Simulated assay, not measured.
Amino acid sequence: MLKRNRTLKKADAELDITSFMNLMIVLVPVLLMMMVFSRITVLELTLPPLLSNASPSELENKQLELLVNGEGMNVYYPTGYLLQKINKKEGQHDYALLQQTLKELKQTLLNKGADKEDIVLLLDDQVPYQTIVKLMDTTRSYKEVVGVDVVDAELFPSISLADAPNIVDEAGNAVSDAFSVNKGVAL
């Protein structure tokens, strides 16, 4: 007997990528729109300048300092002179008063022709992380209405972090209000 050799011709398979293309048409714009909402912001911090190797012109003590401890916040300008003492309100720091004080100081400095952009945050060991973040946001900028738009106006964007000084009085007790001896404003 004779065997017939049957061979079936296979038809070429057709790829249907229509549904994949529809998915890409919808997915790509959605992903591009989401990129705008998921930005990562980076805040650059610096260390306070070392005074030991500074020139005499840099030692004018024109440094803006914000001392933060468990009792409240103290704004010093220039170094050692208490500009504003901000006590806690109902157990919380008064960021609104701090921002108002910094806005007034910035305006005073601008009126005198000085454009100061740096601030040193002197932080106590017990200051929580969330408070530090809120302080940096408060001292960097504030919301200002210009025309019909709300914009971020600049206060002191160059932020340095340092430990709060431990001041000891004659009896050996720690003084919580550092630089309390020099009260007054010398702009």
Rank of each mutant, 00 (worst) to 15 (best):
T7N: 09
L8F: 06
L8E: 07
D16Q: 11
I17Y: 07
S19E: 11
F20T: 12
M21N: 11
L23I: 04
V26M: 10
V30E: 04
L32T: 05
M33D: 00
V36I: 11
F37Q: 08
S38I: 13
S38G: 02
L45E: 04
L50N: 12
S52D: 06
N53V: 08
A54G: 01
S55M: 07
S55F: 08
P56V: 09
S57C: 04
S57F: 13
S57N: 10
K62Y: 03
L66M: 13
G70L: 06
M73R: 12
Y77I: 06
Y81S: 09
I86K: 13
K88V: 02
K89W: 03
D94E: 09
A96P: 01
Q100R: 15
K103N: 06
L105P: 07
T108G: 01
L109C: 01
L110N: 14
N111Q: 14
N111D: 12
D115W: 05
E117K: 15
D118T: 10
I119F: 01
L121E: 02
V127Q: 08
Y129M: 10
I132C: 03
V133W: 04
K134L: 06
L135K: 14
T139D: 00
R140L: 00
S141A: 13
Y142Q: 13
V145P: 00
V146G: 00
G147T: 11
E154F: 05
P157E: 05
S158L: 12
S158Y: 08
I159D: 03
A162M: 07
A162E: 06
A162S: 15
N166G: 00
D169P: 06
E170W: 08
A174F: 10
V175L: 11
S180L: 01
G184S: 05
V185T: 12
V185H: 12
A186K: 15
A186D: 02
